[in-house]
Amino acid sequence: MYLSTLPRHEGSIVKIGIIGAGNIGRILAERLAREGHDVSIANSRAPETVDAAALSTGARAVWAADATTEADVVIVSVNYGQLPNVAALVSGAPENTVIIDTSNYFPLRDGKVEGFEDGQVESEWVQKLYGRPIVKAWNNITTASFRDKAYATDPATRIGLPVAADDDAQRAVGMRLVEETGFDAYDAGVIADSWRQQPGSPVYTNDLTAGELPAALARARQDRSAVRRDLMMKVYLERIDADGKEPDPERQLALTRAIF
């Protein structure tokens, strides 16, 4: 439905609105505009405060209220604690707009959300918040890997990213855009199973290839993911405390892999 009805320009979706101009949102704007999409991006402040790097390939900075207007795709790239602040904007997007969520829940940062500690799937909570279906994508890669490891030509090193959604056509849209940002997209099934790509799972920030993703997703344990998520954060914060700085990207990857 969505791929066949979305307007095209040289094979591209015309209107993409990005809410959130942080690390991931900024890179998404740059890459998707380079692919020929009509991209707008907004932060929580005024358009003139959006980082110029996000606009370097043709994306436009807009007010948040305008990012969803007539959009074919809306990408929400904010912290979990900020999702309620943008819920009305997302819910008010056109009926056929594909909503893609990149966020992850970390209780140390976002505060505890009732139900998550008992195993509620994060993206099911987001769907309920918005009152509409979402696609889960781009949530399991670090900023450094997203920035520096895209477009690898060797399948043995090209990172695969899982994409989950309840609607097959919406999932296909998400997968197509993941591919356009320089990674292999992997069909991760429905939102009820998207806990397998949340923090604390073997695929989270592990830089796995698409060929490695099926086995890693199968190893995920829903009853242990929250424990491992918090362990990962404790190890990471301990290294910051001990070294006086954040681990470099390869050290961070090694720490994550050691847990899994």
Rank of each mutant, 00 (worst) to 15 (best):
L6G: 10
E10I: 02
I13N: 02
V14S: 12
I16S: 03
I16L: 09
I18S: 04
I18K: 02
G22E: 09
N23K: 03
N23S: 07
I27W: 08
R34H: 06
E35W: 00
E35Y: 00
G36D: 10
H37T: 09
I41T: 07
I41D: 05
S44I: 06
R45I: 12
R45T: 14
A46H: 12
P47K: 13
E48R: 09
T49F: 05
V50N: 05
D51G: 11
A53N: 10
A54N: 06
L55P: 07
S56H: 08
A59I: 04
R60H: 11
R60C: 13
R60V: 13
W63L: 15
A65I: 12
D66A: 09
T68M: 10
T69N: 14
V74N: 09
I75A: 04
V78Y: 08
V78D: 09
N85A: 14
A87F: 06
S91Y: 14
T97S: 14
D101N: 12
T102M: 02
T102P: 05
S103F: 03
N104Y: 07
F106N: 09
D110A: 04
V113A: 05
E117Q: 05
E117C: 00
E117P: 01
W125T: 04
V126M: 02
Q127A: 11
K128G: 07
L129Y: 07
I134H: 02
I134A: 04
K136F: 03
W138G: 00
W138S: 00
N139S: 07
N139H: 03
A144V: 07
S145Y: 06
S145A: 09
R147D: 05
D148W: 01
D148S: 09
A150H: 06
Y151R: 13
A152I: 01
A152L: 03
A152D: 10
P155Y: 00
A156W: 03
T157S: 14
G160R: 00
A165I: 13
A169G: 15
Q170H: 14
R171C: 14
A172M: 11
A172T: 13
G174K: 05
M175G: 06
M175S: 01
L177F: 02
V178Q: 02
V178T: 08
E179W: 04
T181W: 09
G182Q: 08
F183C: 02
A185F: 12
A188R: 02
D193K: 08
D193Y: 08
D193M: 04
R196P: 01
P199R: 08
G200C: 10
P202F: 00
Y204T: 04
N206L: 08
T209R: 02
G211E: 03
A218S: 00
R219H: 10
R221H: 00
A226W: 12
V227H: 08
V227A: 06
R229L: 13
R229I: 07
D230K: 11
L231N: 07
L231D: 03
M232T: 15
K234A: 14
K234V: 13
R239Y: 11
D243Y: 08
K245F: 06
K245R: 14
E246H: 12
D248L: 12
E250V: 09
L253V: 09
A254E: 15
L255H: 07
T256M: 15
R257H: 06
